[in-house]
Simulated assay, not measured.
Amino acid sequence: MEQRTVLVVLFEGVQSLDVTGPLEVFTGASQWHGDAEPYRVVTASPDGAPVRTSSGLALSPDTSLTEAAARSWHTLLVPGGAGTRAQDADLVAWLRANAPRARRLVSVCTGSILLARAGLLDGRRATTHWAYCDTLARNHPDVEVDPDPIYVRDGHVATSAGVTAGIDLALALVEEDLGRDTALTVARFLVVFLRRPGNQAQFSAQLSAQTARSEPLREVQRWISENPAGDLSVESLAARARLSPRHFARSFHAETGTTPGKYVDRVRVEQARRLLEDTSGGVEEVSRACGYGTPEAMRRAFLKALGTTPAEYRRRFHSSLTTAP
């Protein structure tokens, strides 16, 4: 069996989990795959010296980038972190000169910013941490930035969203290399899902809106999430919060940054997506379970929020599970 060398780039201010998450996946695959070790993980910093992560953790690399350039490797992984915002011209130049040698080029979180500076994402579709998608798109107009997925594959280049999305991408790569059984074993050992599809949204309705400060409104948010098929009119929600509808709507918007109606819409679409992904229920059944009442109402909501119909969304989702990521 081919042993794939995974070279992980380290630098000052790197995000520790961007490094250790994928590292645990690849080394875990070697541990659980059997006698053969399908991966050899090597870490390298610019000068071979230890680096300090954004959280203060010190990491000691195996080698320097100069020495690593003289060797062969299969996968080059570039993590993100606060250090990517520094203008490290030498690191970018190293990536520009050496990254094209990789059979597979991977970034985690804002590592995509380094790849973009090196011109390695020009003409490609890519993603990054949701908080930096606008920055990536603005500074690198030749990159097609998709802010929604947790990871994106474009040929031999794979980019992932923030932090833990690097684990999802690494698991997808292990599944591609070694099969589902090995990836599932690693996922179970790490107690994570195998696998969140790359087209899954980076954050949920609850994360995309702020959590309300006051307990009555936080309780209303919980109620909406747990009862998408219930009466979620402003009048009903206001009564649950023991406020007048006018006062409730004004307070909800002030504390969450969105209106009650838009929040309900997000929760219902999110719940419908989960049911379409995880169950075999028909579109009519799902629409009732999520409070739409009719399939046509859910269809309009999906077209508005996702640009696709529920049936097409389900087809694409299951297609992503049966083809290589």
Rank of each mutant, 00 (worst) to 15 (best):
G80V: 10
L121S: 01
P79D: 03
A68Y: 05
R103T: 13
R96L: 08
A69H: 02
S55C: 13
T66K: 11
E67D: 15
R52P: 10
A68C: 09
R101S: 07
A116Y: 03
L114F: 06
V78W: 02
T128M: 04
S45N: 08
W94E: 12
G119I: 07
S107H: 00
A49C: 11
R71Y: 11
G56E: 09
W73V: 02
V106G: 03
R117C: 05
V108G: 04
V51Y: 06
G81F: 10
G56T: 10
R52D: 10
G123R: 04
A131N: 14
A126R: 05
G80W: 06
W94H: 12
G83M: 07
S72M: 08
I113Q: 12
R71N: 12
P100D: 06
L77I: 03
S55Y: 13
R85S: 10
V92S: 07
Q87W: 10
A86T: 14
A89Y: 00
G83L: 02
A116H: 00
G48H: 00
R124E: 01
A49R: 15
S72I: 08
S112F: 00
A89H: 08
G119H: 00
R71I: 07
L120I: 05
R125C: 10
A69N: 01
A93H: 09
I113W: 05
L57E: 13
I113R: 01
P79G: 00
G80F: 03
A131Q: 15
E67F: 10
G123L: 06
L59T: 04
S45E: 09
R85I: 08
G83R: 03
S112R: 00
P100S: 02
